[in-house]
Structures are given as structure tokens and as C-alpha cells.
Amino acid sequence: MSETGTRRLRVHRFKRGDGGAHFDEFVVPAGPRTTVLDALRWIQLHADPSLALRHSCMHASCGTCGVQVDGQEELACVARLGDHRGDPVTVEPLANVPVLTDLVVDMADFFRRFGDRHPVLRASEAVAGAQPPDGLDRFVRLEDCIECGLCLSACPVAATSARYAGPAALSAAQRLLEEPRGADRDDVLAWAGRPEGAWRCHVGMECTRACPADALPAERIMALRRELGGREAGARP
């Protein structure tokens, strides 16, 4: 972190058993490359070691460090303080999932929304023209979705419906239709067609905007609806 100045941060605090939540303000050193995560870790090391936050990979691949920065869902590890004009910059936990403490949300509530099958390894489409070597029938790679919960936090429908499956889970279902990996197509469609499934979406498009992995959740929900619509039309006598 090359330091050229300071920024003020307003951070959501919540310790269970201590009454309600509040915000604490900190002044942190900040340079052009300083990320929100750099700033939060600086607070942990130099101002308040009790600040709890999630992080792991530091490069937008694990999906643990999602927070709201000035109300916008971002991965703290790649969110630059310089891209936010707030003074102070407000950092809050993700919305629409329960808060464990400070900036930490309980992702059990995110994963409970998924269907039963949730494979994360897929065929790789990358590098056109590449031949897999002898003995490998195809190249594989991990799914784009990093299960960070940013889409669920950004979704205005999830704000009023705790039962809504939400963008990530519905996208995962659509991926199973594209590449079944052993899943039963009818089961996936039955799951996605439930009242709390794909039809609950109201095209706010905020999930695709929030997605840090370009997994296109909104587009996948719409594709899922097309499949569901086709199925229902086809089922008519």
C-alpha cells in the first residue's frame, strides 16, 4: 500500500450480547492502489483487533470478502477506496443474509437456497483451438460463480422475500440445464418453477451488475424462464 494520504471509513459494528449495531469511524492511510480490504485489515492491525471480517484469497476467486461499500456490493479485495467518493466511505455487511458480527454474514442462509445438486467443476471453453492432451477427454475448470452472495444482497426482491431462491441459486440451476453433469432436467425445472423460484424475479438486473465474476445471473434467470415457459407450453394438451 503506497501511502499518499488518508481516508475516513465508517464501519458497521455489531457484537452479539452487547445490544444493537452501530458504526465506528476510522482514519486509514490510503494510496492509489489501496483496497477496501487493505483498509479494513489496517484497522484490525493498528486500531481495533476486534473488528471481524471475512477474507481469504485476495484476488476475487474465493468470494468470501463481499461487503457493501457506500451501499454498493463489492468484493473488498478488489474494491479500490479511490473509486468511492464517500467521506467517510461506509462499509456494511451484505444485505438480505443474517449478520454474525461486524462485517461477517452467515453464509449458511445463502447456501440453503440452492437446489440439491451444486457441482462447481465444469467443462472449460477457454482458449479456442486448444486440444486436450492424451488421456484427458476434455479440459475442465471451476464454475464462474464464486458464491459470494453479492447478487443476493443487491436483489430488490430478496429484500422483501426471505424465501426467494435468489440469483446465485437460480443461475446454478440454469447451468445444470446447460451442462447437466448427471442432473435430471425435469427435477431442475420443477425446482426452478416453484413459487419462490425463477418467476419471483422482477428484472431489476442488479444481480448481473453486482456480480464480480461476470456469471450473468439475471440473464441466466431469464434463460431459465424461457425453458420453463417452453416446458409449460409443451405440456399443454
Binding site: A52, L53, R54, H55, S56, M58, S61, C62, T64
Partner: peptide, 14 residues
């Protein structure tokens, strides 16, 4: 003290 694998493991090149 923090999230799982927040020290060295998670930052691994993979």
C-alpha cells in the same frame, strides 16, 4: 481468529 484460510492457505496460487 478470522475467517477460515484467511492467513496463508487461501492466498495460495492454487
Amino acid at each position: 481468529r478470522g475467517e477460515l484460510t484467511s492467513g496463508t492457505t487461501g492466498r495460495h496460487h492454487g
